[in-house]
Simulated scan of single mutants.
Amino acid sequence: MRVIVTGGDGYCGWATALHLANRGHDVAILDNLVRRSWDNQLRIETLTPIAPIQRRLERWEQLTGKPIELMVGDCCDYPFLSESIRRFHPEAIVHFGEQRSAPFSMISRERAVETQVNNVVGNLNILFAMRDLVPDCHLVKLGTMGEYGTPNIDIEEGYITIEHNGRKDTLPYPKQPGSFYHLSKVHDTHNIHFACRIWGLRATDLNQGVVYGVITEETEMDELLINRLDYDGVFGTALNRFCIQAAVGHPLTVYGKGGQTRGFLDIRDTVRCIEIACNNPADSGEFRVYNQFTEQFSVSQLAEKVKEAGSKMGLDVTIEHVDNPRVEREEHYYNAKNTKLLDLGLQPHYLSDSLLDSLLNVAVKYRDRVDMKEILPRVTWKKGAVEEAAGVKVG
């Protein structure tokens, strides 16, 4: 089918665009390339060397003969967005084109506003463009498990059946987001649900857990296709950060008590989940929610796994508990459901010694690129960015 991948130059979007193209879909990437700009503004750089998007796509076509169209522009620019959708006429839109970092959204008022405007307005623009131009198109939207927070009950997939005062109804699951970023995703969810209900659009919201890994079938074809691997305190996620810290001999920085438990999945499962959602579209007027993760771990459990794997490779790995920059429960109940994608055929890649070895090997290969000043967190939920606290504006 014809698929637009917004945010196709980013971590999940790049791997997804290549995967869908490799499976025979006609793919276009729509991206304003702001992720690269944010790196420059924050003076950070991903571990792996990332070529310009045009060079990446040229190499992909040389290797596979399957061109991917590039449309450079902003989802918040409605004339550009609507013209791109009108011309390409997609059957599915995979929407990754959002600011995806909780710490980024907590740096300052300006970054919180930037996050919410970029995410909420861009998503709204897509909904209106679908209504007016491609009403049968299927929206596959990347949400986040962080919308739910850490309730003291099981987390269902999007909806919960409640009995109250003798009456029963199935309602959207309550949301307890933990940052301005997660709040933006909640707003997206409500807007998409409304658009499906009122306009008859079709959408699948994939509440994704924390993604780890760098290699997919497509990104390992050539050095120019390699994916991002972020380790800094703004964009780096737990397992990826731990592997890079192990590679450079820095203690694994566990925030607080380390009991924070979340859903996790391999980047290879991210792209497969997107493919499954595209191949099994929602019905007209239907708003589906799938919880997109494969396993649950606490931060301390991840650190112990990396320590064990690193020690087997001859790395001297230690664990250090640091003050938690976030405002979150460090010990809590967590049990989330994740059966719907499995029912549709997902065959998960579980976190194993071989996967950790692979990730650690990538970290070791590029460890000379690590900026040691970026190992520790830079943003606290109560004060914002370290630089701003010191009177120096970030960006």
Rank of each mutant, 00 (worst) to 15 (best):
T6F: 00
G7C: 02
A15S: 14
H25I: 05
D31G: 03
Q41I: 11
E45S: 15
L47F: 07
R56I: 11
R56Q: 14
R56T: 11
L57P: 00
R59Q: 11
P67K: 13
E83S: 14
I85L: 08
F88S: 01
P90W: 05
H95N: 15
F96C: 01
R100L: 04
E110T: 11
A112Q: 06
V117L: 06
N118R: 07
V121D: 07
L127G: 04
A129W: 05
V134K: 00
L142K: 01
T144D: 02
E157P: 00
Y159L: 04
H164V: 07
N165S: 14
D169I: 08
L183M: 12
D188A: 07
D188G: 08
N191Q: 06
I192T: 06
I192W: 02
H193G: 02
N207R: 15
E220A: 11
D222P: 01
E223F: 02
E223Q: 10
L224S: 11
I226G: 03
Y231F: 13
V234L: 13
G236Q: 10
C243N: 08
G249K: 03
P251Q: 11
V254G: 00
Y255S: 08
G258A: 09
D266T: 04
T270L: 15
V271K: 06
A277V: 01
N279H: 10
N279T: 04
S284R: 15
E286I: 11
F287H: 14
F287V: 08
V289H: 11
N291D: 09
T294E: 03
Q296G: 11
F297A: 06
K305R: 12
A309Y: 04
M313H: 08
V317M: 09
E320D: 09
N338R: 15
D343C: 09
L346F: 10
Q347R: 14
P348I: 03
P348W: 10
D353P: 03
L356F: 09
L360S: 10
V362W: 05
A363Y: 13
K365P: 01
Y366K: 02
D368W: 06
M372C: 12
K373L: 11
E374F: 01
T380I: 04
T380N: 14
V386E: 15
A390N: 14
A390M: 14
K393D: 13
K393W: 13
G395F: 05
